[in-house]
Nucleic acid binder design. Structure first.
Length: 644
RNA sequence: GCCGGAAUAGCUCAGCUCGGUAGAGCAGCGCAUUCGUAAUGCGUUGGUCGGAGGUUCGAAUCCUCUUUCCGGCACCA
């Protein structure tokens, strides 16, 4: 006698057990058609799920995010079914839902071609059209292992064999296709309305590089054609923001074959870079850091003592000169300890904050290089705080405040916090790790921040907090970090004299706000789509004359603004004003100052923003104020000077 | 590093399937035009087709190796 309560608070009584689909039909024909799954007492189930007793029920449709996930998950199965029909030799493995879509990994003796992909997608459409019933059944584990082994599905059998023997396995079938799955799934293949296969790529079995390479097919699926199109449009928009493309178009930097993973900065890009560096230097000083500079090339033995050689020796650029081995520094920390070690330190010197815009090189795997985002030569806004254990929490808290201010100045306000704890390969005792992990967790809690735990993701010498932010497209980028290190100071002999005259080993906090300048600039380019706020724009304003008659006035305007410290250029070419406006708009210069006879006479400038807004004619003094304000507000500003 | 794809003028791309020593638009350069808010017109320069081998009478095109890039995977001190 199930009594079923619904989200609107109403209640329905049934004389006998009913399925989710039956309740949906009872409520209305429209809902019955839209039902993709159910949520019974909080648990997601199929629409065929029978409810025997009293329960709370929600009908899940494509309007719910879970409903969309069910569609994507079922679409992964549809993909697997199509592949098995077209390529019986392929073995199925796993097919999870991911953001905006799904993928399915197949073991196959060759790679799928783009033509295969098209054929598979066509077949999926036919199968969806056929509206095959999706059926769920359960089976004891060992029976399921035997079933899949019998079908030649070794990978699937291996997955099932890893499930505890006592658990019943749920299988889903549609047509002749059967797959192991937890579910739930849509009731029939016709409920997968809009999908597209997007790419094919290799992926390791169980995500481990020692295992076989599988063929992964990616796809996206949506409740309707319109949402699918909107998604594809978003993808195309994201592509327009690609920093590699904008980097070339805006003449910021380039990378070439002779120096893979290293950046050639052009004047405009370097202006942006040095502006950011100047800002960071200023902020750092204000937060009690002292800047230093340490060597690029250091005897290999230092890296052996620091422990880097053990774990990363193969990924360091090293060379042999005059029977001595050197390495180009991959990190700054061991060098910073050398600076710390000069002279005898007192507890009164702590905390000692040493900062360096440290140029580092790492031989990153060739396949991981990606524009400015992953390079082999980069510069960190690095610093090491030498302090006592008792000072850790306060230092971490101060750092978090510092970092929040910097991110806000760059126009980012959504920060994501993650705490990574001890990895398998590490230095230092468990007791030390306990203390370090706890100190970081407490600092986060003390600041009232919500954070996520990443077990095993810490650095080899200590746990870390990672600070990520969301850009304008909602993509998450990891930038800042603070790491507690109880090991390296000891390994490298750092000491201080405590109040009781004893010799103690300081704790070292590794920290960075932006991470690498290269990567951060890549993120900024994409976040702003190259339309940098005035304080960062390589050229803040450009003066355009209408005819040669105003050339002298245009030059004097340019000079006046340059003398006020602004980055201003002029464009005196004999071109139509519309042409010049178009060019400088495409170069995303914040302010276009147009001078014709009228402006020359009144000693003013007609201002047009890169957004196409006409600010009218202003006296030069008033424009100086306008630009000055625009620069001062940095990335916290309004629409005129930021992305959108 | 692994799987797959790509590399042709400064940029974006065509030519490659079916081998006969390269073509467009934009940019650049020259000339005319002096024109008030997103492309003025005409003319013109420019490439040993990523590199090295091979097949062939002949290779941008076919084969092998290699470098780099792109999309994933793995890695990321």
């Amino acid at each position: 006698m199930p009594s079923i309560s619904l989200p609107d608070g109403s209640r329905r009584e049934y004389p006998a057990p009913v399925t989710v689909a039956e309740v949906a039909a009872d409520i209305g024909a429209g809902l019955a058609k839209a039902a993709l799954a159910g949520r019974v007492d909080g648990r997601l189930v199929d629409t065929s799920y029978p409810i025997a007793g009293d329960a709370a029920l929600e009908i899940v449709t494509a309007r719910d995010s879970e409903g969309v996930e069910v569609i994507r998950h079922s679409c992964a199965h549809l993909l697997a079914q199509a592949v098995k029909e077209l390529f019986p030799g392929a073995q199925v493995t796993i097919g999870p839902v991911i953001e905006d879509g799904f993928y399915y990994d197949f073991a196959f003796d060759r790679a799928f071609t783009p033509e295969d992909l098209q054929a598979i997608e066509d077949r999926m459409r036919e199968l969806a059209q056929a509206d095959l019933q999706v059926q769920r059944r359960e089976m004891p584990r060992d029976e399921a292992v035997a079933l899949f082994r019998g079908m030649g599905e070794e990978y699937k059998a291996e997955i099932i064999a890893a499930i505890p023997a006592a658990e019943a396995i749920s299988l889903y079938s549609q047509g002749d296709f059967v797959d192991l799955c937890r579910g739930p799934h849509v009731p029939s293949t016709g409920k997968i309305p809009a999908f597209k296969l997007t790419k094919v790529a290799g992926a390791y079995w169980r995500g481990d590089a020692r295992n076989a390479m599988l063929q992964r097919i990616y796809g996206t699926a949506w409740p309707n054609r319109k949402e699918l199109d909107a998604y594809l449009h978003r993808q195309a928009e994201a592509e327009k923001r690609d920093h590699r493309r904008l980097g070339r178009r805006l003449d910021l930097f380039h990378i070439q074959e002779e120096a893979p993973g290293m950046v050639f900065w052009h004047p405009r890009g370097w202006m942006l870079y040095t502006e950011i560096e100047r800002y960071m230097r200023d902020r750092q000083r204000a937060h009690g850091y002292r800047e230093i500079r340490t060597p690029q090339l250091v005897d290999f033995s230092l890296w052996q003592r620091s422990g880097h050689a053990d774990k990363f020796g193969a990924d360091m650029f090293s060379l042999q000169m005059d029977e001595r081995a050197f390495a180009i520094k991959p990190m700054n920390c061991p060098c910073h300890v050398q600076v710390y070690n000069q002279g005898l330190r007192s507890y009164r010197d702590l905390p000692l904050r040493l900062a360096e815009f440290g140029s580092c090189h790492r031989n990153e795997p060739s396949g991981s290089l990606h524009g400015l985002m992953r390079v082999r030569g980069f510069t960190q806004d690095d610093a090491h705080i030498f302090c006592t254990e008792a000072q850790i929490q306060e230092e971490v808290a101060r750092f978090i405040d510092f970092l929040h201010g910097v991110y806000a100045d760059f126009g980012f306000d959504e920060v994501i916090y993650r705490l990574s704890t001890r990895p398998e390969q590490r230095v230092g005792s468990d007791e030390i790790w306990d203390r370090a992990e706890q100190a970081l967790a407490e600092a986060l809690n003390h600041q009232g921040l919500e954070w996520e735990l990443l077990p095993g993701e810490g650095a080899f010498y200590g746990p870390k907090i990672e600070f990520s932010l969301k850009d304008v497209l909602g993509r998450v980028w990891q930038l800042g970090t603070i790491q507690v290190d109880f090991s390296m100071p000891e390994r490298l002999g750092a000491q201080y004299v405590a109040a009781d005259d004893s010799r103690q080993v300081p704790v070292m906090l590794h920290r960075a706000v932006l991470g690498s300048f290269e990567r951060f600039i890549g993120i900024l380019i994409e976040h702003y789509e190259g339309a940098f706020p005035a304080w960062l724009a390589p050229v803040q304003a450009v003066v355009l004359n209408i005819t040669d008659r105003q050339a002298d006035y245009a030059k004097s305007v340019t000079e006046t603004l340059q003398n006020k410290g602004f980055r201003v250029e002029n464009d005196l070419r004999n071109e139509k004003i519309g042409f010049k406006i178009r060019e400088h708009t495409l170069l995303k210069t914040p302010y276009l100052l147009i001078v014709g006879d009228r402006e020359t006479e009144t000693q003013s400038v007609a201002i047009r923003t890169r957004e196409g807004e006409d600010l009218g004619s202003l006296s030069l003094d008033r424009f100086v104020d306008l630009l000055g304000d625009s620069v001062r507000e940095r990335g916290r500003g309004t629409k005129t000077t930021s992305a959108e």
